[in-house]
Design a protein around this nucleic acid. Structure first.
Ligand SMILES: [Zn+2]
Ligand SMILES: [Zn+2]
Ligand SMILES: [Zn+2]
Ligand SMILES: [Zn+2]
Lengths: 113, 113
DNA sequence: AATTATAACGCAACTAAGTTGCAATAATAC
DNA sequence: GTATTATTGCAACTTAGTTGCGTTATAATT
C-alpha cells in the first residue's frame, strides 16, 4: 500500500488504492491500515471538498521536504490530489489551539488543462 | 433559514440548522434550499475535515467584508465553524485553473480554550 | 371563480464513505 | 504443540447527502 502511494506520488482515496493494489483485500482492512499509518505519522490525511478522505505519504527527505502544513490541489478532471510545496501561513490569537490544518484548492491541474 | 445563519454568525451544518429552525421542515428541502443559495452566491459552502458540509452567509457589507477566499476555524469542542477574516494566499503556475478554495483550521476556539 | 401551469415540499428510497463487532485466520510466544 | 495476540474478512451499521415522484401550495390565464 505504501509502495502504491509512493509510485503514484499523489494522495489517493481508499477506492483508488484498492484498485491499484488489486483484488483480495478488504475495504475495512485498508481503512484500518491507513488510519494506523496516519497515527504513526507515516501518512497524512486530506479531506477534500468532495467530502472524501485522501491519503498521502509524509515527505521527510531533506531535499523536497513538505512544509508541515501545505496546500493540496484536487483536480476535478483526473480526480487526483497532489501535495503542493506551498506552506500555509496564517496567524491566530493565542486563544485558539490549532490541531489540524486542511487546505485544498480545487480545479483543473496542469496536466489536464 | 438565512436569519438563523445570520443570528448564529457562524457556519452551520444542515443538522444544526434544522435544530434551530425547529420541526416541520424536511431534510431534503433544507439541502435543496442551501444548495440553491450557494449557487446564487448568498451562501458559501465549507467542507470541514469531518467530511461534513457547513454553510455560511457571504458577507458583502463593506465594513467587514470577507476576503473571497478566507480561512475557517472549526472548533472540535463546540462543533462550530467560523469564517476568519484571514485571506488565503497562494500562487500557482498558470497551468492550474483554480475553481474553489477550501481551507479549514481545526482545534479549540477562543471561547472553549 | 375555475382552470391550468409552475414551483416548492415531503416522503421514501437510494448511494457512498467510513466505522465497528465478531468470528476466523495468521503470526508470535511459551 | 499449545496458548496468546494481532490481522483480516465479512456483514451490518451509521451518517451525510441526493434523487425520483407524488402531493401540495403558489402563481398565471382565461
Ligand atoms: Zn488533472
Ligand atoms: Zn500533503
Ligand atoms: Zn469552541
Ligand atoms: Zn467563510
Amino acid at each position: 500500500m505504501l509502495s502504491v502511494l509512493s509510485e503514484a506520488g499523489k494522495a489517493m482515496s481508499q477506492g483508488a488504492i484498492q484498485k491499484k493494489v488489486g483484488i483480495g483485500i478488504n475495504r475495512a482492512t485498508i481503512y484500518r491500515v491507513l488510519n494506523s499509518y496516519c497515527e504513526d505519522g507515516i501518512l497524512h490525511r486530506i479531506v477534500a471538498d468532495d467530502g472524501k478522505q485522501y491519503f498521502a505519504l509524509c515527505m521527510k527527505c531533506e531535499k523536497e521536504e513538505q512544509p508541515k502544513h501545505h496546500f493540496h490541489f484536487r483536480c476535478t478532471s483526473c480526480d487526483t490530489i497532489e501535495c503542493l510545496p506551498i506552506p500555509v501561513n496564517f496567524s491566530l490569537s493565542d486563544h485558539y489551539k490549532v490541531e489540524t490544518v486542511n487546505c485544498v484548492i480545487s480545479g483543473t491541474c496542469k496536466d489536464c488543462s
